[in-house]
C-alpha cells in the first residue's frame, strides 16, 4: 500500500490544458452519461449533486478590462502515493491498482461511512444521498451504459477513469491477438468528448504517449502537489495566475515559469505571462 505504482506496468493519467478549456461542461455531461451518474430533480443542490467530473471557475480577481477567467475540470486525481482515501477505507472498498494506477471503488463493498470523503482534499468522492434516479419518459434511460452498474443509496462513488473502457479496449486487443494497448485505444469519456481537445489521456509510464510528454512540460502542474498525494491528473497553463491557484502558497513561494522550452510550438504563446 505504501509503495507508489511506479513498479506497475501502466500508469494511466491525464493532462488537462487549461488554456484550451472553454468551460463548456461537455466533459461533465459525457462523464455522467458514460458512467450512469444519477441525477436529481434539483441538480442545483451542489453540495449533494454527483459530478465525478466537476468544473470549477476561477478568476484572476482583477477589475475589468483585466479580468480573466479560467476553468478547472476536476476528475478524481487517482493519487499515486498512498491515496488519502484508500488507507482510511474501513471495508477495503477502495484500492489503488498497481497495474493501472487507477483508484477503484467497489460499490457493493462500501458501507457508506464517508471517511474517504473526509480524507480527500479534492472533493472528488460523492455519496449517494438518494436512490439512483433517472427521469422516466425523457429518454434518459436509453442512454444508460450497460457496462456500468448504477450505484445504490448509501454508498460512495467516484471517477474510475472509465474503467469499463479499459476493459473493453483490453478485450478488443485480446481478440486481435495483442497484449498491449495502442495509444488512444483507451481514453476516458471526458477526454473523448472535449470539443477543445483540452484533455489528453494515456499511459504516463509510456514515454511514447502524448500524455507522458505533456506531463513533463514546464507549464504542467498538479493540484495541491505539495501535500504529497502525487495526482495522476496534470494541468497545463501558460498563465501564472492560473498555476498559482493550484496550490496553497506562502508569500514569495511561487516561481513563475520563464524559460521557453522544446514544447513551445505547442499551443502556448509567450511563457510566464500573466494575461492574454
Amino acid at each position: 500500500m505504501k509503495k507508489g505504482s511506479d513498479q506497475g506496468k501502466h500508469k494511466y493519467g491525464m493532462v488537462i490544458d487549461l488554456d484550451k478549456c472553454t468551460g463548456c461542461g461537455t466533459c461533465m455531461i459525457a462523464c455522467a452519461s458514460e458512467n450512469n451518474v444519477s441525477v436529481r430533480p434539483d441538480q442545483s443542490d451542489k453540495e449533494r449533486a454527483i459530478t465525478w467530473m466537476c468544473l470549477y471557475k476561477i478568476t484572476n480577481g482583477k477589475e475589468f478590462p483585466h479580468t480573466e477567467v479560467s476553468y478547472f475540470p476536476r476528475p478524481c486525481m487517482h493519487c499515486d502515493n498512498n491515496p488519502p482515501c484508500v488507507s482510511v477505507c474501513v471495508a477495503t472498498a477502495t484500492k489503488l491498482d498497481f497495474n493501472t494506477g487507477i483508484v477503484s471503488q467497489i460499490y457493493t463493498r462500501c458501507i457508506g461511512c464517508r471517511y474517504c470523503q473526509a480524507a480527500c482534499p479534492y472533493g472528488s468522492r460523492y455519496f449517494n444521498w438518494w436512490h439512483a434516479y433517472f427521469p422516466k419518459g425523457k429518454g434518459l434511460e436509453r442512454y444508460l451504459t450497460p457496462e456500468v452498474s448504477p450505484r445504490m443509496r448509501g454508498v460512495v462513488e467516484k471517477c474510475t477513469f472509465c474503467h469499463q473502457r479499459l476493459m473493453r479496449a483490453k478485450n478488443q486487443a485480446y481478440a486481435e491477438g495483442r497484449r498491449e494497448l495502442e495509444e488512444g485505444e483507451y481514453v476516458t469519456a471526458c477526454a473523448e468528448a472535449c470539443p477543445a481537445q483540452a484533455i489528453t489521456f494515456g499511459d504516463l509510464n509510456n514515454h511514447e504517449h502524448q500524455v507522458s510528454k505533456l506531463s513533463k512540460h514546464p507549464y504542467a502542474f498538479r493540484l495541491l502537489e505539495r501535500l504529497g498525494t502525487q495526482p495522476k491528473v496534470y494541468y497545463m497553463s501558460s498563465r501564472d495566475w492560473v498555476r498559482r491557484q493550484a496550490e496553497n502558497l506562502l508569500p514569495g513561494e511561487y516561481k513563475p515559469v520563464i524559460n521557453k522550452t522544446w514544447m513551445e510550438e505547442e499551443w502556448s504563446t509567450r511563457p510566464g505571462r500573466d494575461e492574454f
Binding site: S87, C89, V90, A91, T92, A93, R109, C110, I111, G112, C113, R114, F127, N128, M152, R153, G154, V155, V156
Partner: peptide, 16 residues
C-alpha cells in the same frame, strides 16, 4: 450514520 447499515459487519469481516 453509515449509508448501508446492513453492511456494518463488513467493517469487521473485510477489515482494512
Amino acid at each position: 450514520d453509515i449509508g448501508q447499515p446492513l453492511r456494518g459487519w463488513f467493517i469487521f469481516w473485510h477489515a482494512n
